[in-house]
Simulated assay, not measured.
Amino acid sequence: MSHLHTGSCLCGATKFELEGEFKRFFLCHCSRCRKTSGTAHCANLFAPGATLTWLSGEDKLSYYRVEGTHFARTFCSLCGSNMPTDSKERGLVAVPAGCLDSDVDIMPNAHIFMGSKGNWDDHLGDVAAFDGMPT
């Protein structure tokens, strides 16, 4: 069964289509994900064997990889939004959940790299929550 997903960056310069099924969904708390997201974790979906097609803005994409690791990020060079990374050598596409415009049909499988989470990442569920900016 094939699934079609769409997404874009914050400024709208880069848009993509992904044909394939998300098999894993991890919330990663490693220091690299915290640095690239500026928050407690990255929410990444993994689609083995998926086909990623850039509909616009492929020339606006930048790529960064930590040498000697699998850690890589593709991002819009205009607005900085994390975008999908097509890891051909690993046979999968990693998609930041936040860049999707279509619904995600799976729930996160796990929080990972909790051993290196930020010291402020405890009890976030206990923090007040608002539908908009609090006054």
Rank of each mutant, 00 (worst) to 15 (best):
T135N: 13
R24P: 00
H29A: 03
L52W: 00
D121T: 10
E17W: 09
S77H: 06
G115E: 04
S56H: 01
K117D: 02
A40W: 00
E19G: 12
S31K: 06
E19M: 13
L92K: 01
T39M: 02
V104H: 01
V104R: 06
H70T: 15
A40S: 11
S77T: 12
E21G: 02
D59L: 04
S8G: 14
R34F: 00
D126L: 12
H70K: 15
A50M: 05
C33K: 03
H41D: 04
L18M: 11
G7C: 00
A94E: 12
F71P: 01
C76P: 01
M107Q: 15
R32M: 13
L55R: 12
G118E: 05
E21A: 06
A94R: 08
Y64Q: 02
E21R: 03
E89Q: 13
A40Y: 02
K23Y: 03
T74L: 10
D131T: 13
G20A: 14
G118T: 07
K60Y: 12
N119W: 10
F113S: 02
F16S: 07
D103V: 12
F113D: 05
A13V: 07
S56K: 08
T85I: 08
D101G: 11
T14S: 09
M114T: 13
K15I: 03
S77D: 09
S62W: 04
H41T: 07
T74W: 05
T6G: 14
D122P: 02
G7I: 00
G91I: 00
C76K: 05
D59E: 15
G132T: 15
A128K: 15
L10E: 11
L55T: 13
S77R: 04
N109D: 15
G80W: 01
G118S: 11
G132I: 11
I112V: 12
R65Q: 15
H70W: 13
M114R: 07
D86W: 04
F46Y: 05
F25H: 12
E67W: 04
C11K: 09
H111R: 08
D131A: 14
F75G: 03
S2P: 09
S81M: 09
G68N: 14
S62C: 10
V66F: 08
P48I: 07
E58F: 01
T135C: 11
L27E: 02
T6N: 15
F71K: 07
T14G: 00
E58I: 03
R73K: 10
M114E: 14
V66A: 10
T85E: 05
T39A: 09
N82V: 08
E19K: 15
S81W: 04
F26N: 03
L52H: 00
N109Y: 06
V104M: 05
L124C: 09
N82R: 08
I106A: 06
K23D: 04
